[in-house]
Simulated assay, not measured.
Amino acid sequence: MANGSRQAAWEFFGIELKRRREDAGITQVELGARVFVSGGYIGQFEQAIRKPQLDVAQRIDGVLQTDGIFERLCRKLIDDPRYADYFAHVVELERLATRVCEFAPTVVPGLLQTQQYARAVTIAANPFKSDAYVDEIVTARLERSLILDDAARPEYWVALHENVLRIPVGGAQGMAAQLEHITRLMRERTAVVTVLPYEAGAHAAMGGMLKLMDFEDAPPVAYTETEYSGTLIDSPAVVMHAQRTYDLLRVAALSPEASLALVESAAEDFRRCASTT
């Protein structure tokens, strides 16, 4: 579904939710309390600011006795097939976040990927898929990165393990272009990127990637991912632990200045390699 169609689906969801809620004589605050979110969340659903989550939509159906209409809207109109089920909600939260912090142990985070890098990663994970499928996934990933071009973009902090700089995804030339893209974002102060060097040894997040998101009007969340699944975490205690893990990573990482020098050096290494092949 194209972006415009998805937005129209959100707006229809919001209009229908407001109509059904008012017909039932329930305020936003009252409905929010009964489906375990704030009244402000309900208002954001109705204004098509926040994408409705499936579990909340199901609870709304139960409270308003709407015979599953909001669940069906979520499943048929709003969910984006270009993203795995476990990641689709994360994409929407990125757009609402005031700050995003990521740790990447092996792969450049999606928000930083170039087209060539994204294509190489997608093909590696989907060797039997068609070019049309690959193009759709890559386009979706590049669309996500547009939030970094927005004047209201979130603060974006990234800690990269040195692995990310050394694995030649997309070949030497493609990898050089990817690292140069990262250095440009660093120099433009679009993102604060630090590198956890091999010399750091054992580190706090050896289990895998970690994303933290802060919001203006909602509690922070954490997201972790393995090769086949991802987990969005909103438990305050677990999120606090994840935030401490990220703090420990930042302490162990190189300074932004030293990190920039290392990324530039790695890019130059790949450029030299590409020129000799």
Rank of each mutant, 00 (worst) to 15 (best):
A218L: 12
K211T: 10
M213F: 14
R244I: 11
A222T: 10
P236G: 14
G201I: 09
M213W: 14
D234N: 13
D217H: 07
V193M: 13
A242T: 10
T226P: 01
P236M: 05
R244S: 10
Y223H: 15
Y223D: 03
S229Q: 12
G230Q: 07
A202W: 04
G207F: 13
A242V: 07
D217P: 00
G230S: 03
P220N: 03
D234K: 11
L210K: 05
V221N: 04
Y198A: 10
G208M: 03
E225A: 14
V221H: 10
T194G: 01
Y223I: 14
T231Y: 05
A200R: 09
E199A: 15
V238D: 15
P236A: 02
S229W: 09
T231P: 04
F215M: 09
E225W: 14
A222D: 01
P220Y: 04
L196A: 03
M213N: 08
V221L: 06
Y198I: 06
V221Q: 05
A205N: 09
T226D: 10
G230W: 14
M206C: 01
G201R: 01
I233M: 15
Y228I: 12
P236S: 13
L232N: 07
V193Y: 05
Y228M: 07
S229I: 02
L212P: 07
M206R: 02
E227G: 00
A222N: 04
E216S: 06
Y228R: 07
L232K: 01
I233H: 11
G208Q: 06
R244L: 14
M206A: 09
Y198M: 10
A191I: 11
L196S: 14
A222S: 05
V193G: 03
A237M: 11
L212Y: 10
D214M: 08
Y223E: 04
G230K: 06
V239G: 01
L212W: 07
K211V: 15
A237T: 11
L210F: 05
D214I: 02
A222W: 04
T194Y: 03
F215T: 02
A204V: 00
D214C: 08
A202D: 00
V195R: 10
P197W: 10
E216A: 11
E216M: 04
H241I: 13
A191Q: 06
Y223F: 14
V238I: 15
E216G: 03
Q243M: 12
D234H: 05
T190E: 03
M213Y: 13
A205V: 02
A200F: 04
H203D: 02
I233E: 11
D217E: 10
I233K: 10
M209A: 08
P220R: 06
V238P: 01
Q243T: 15
G207N: 12
E227Y: 07
E227M: 09
M213E: 12
A202S: 11
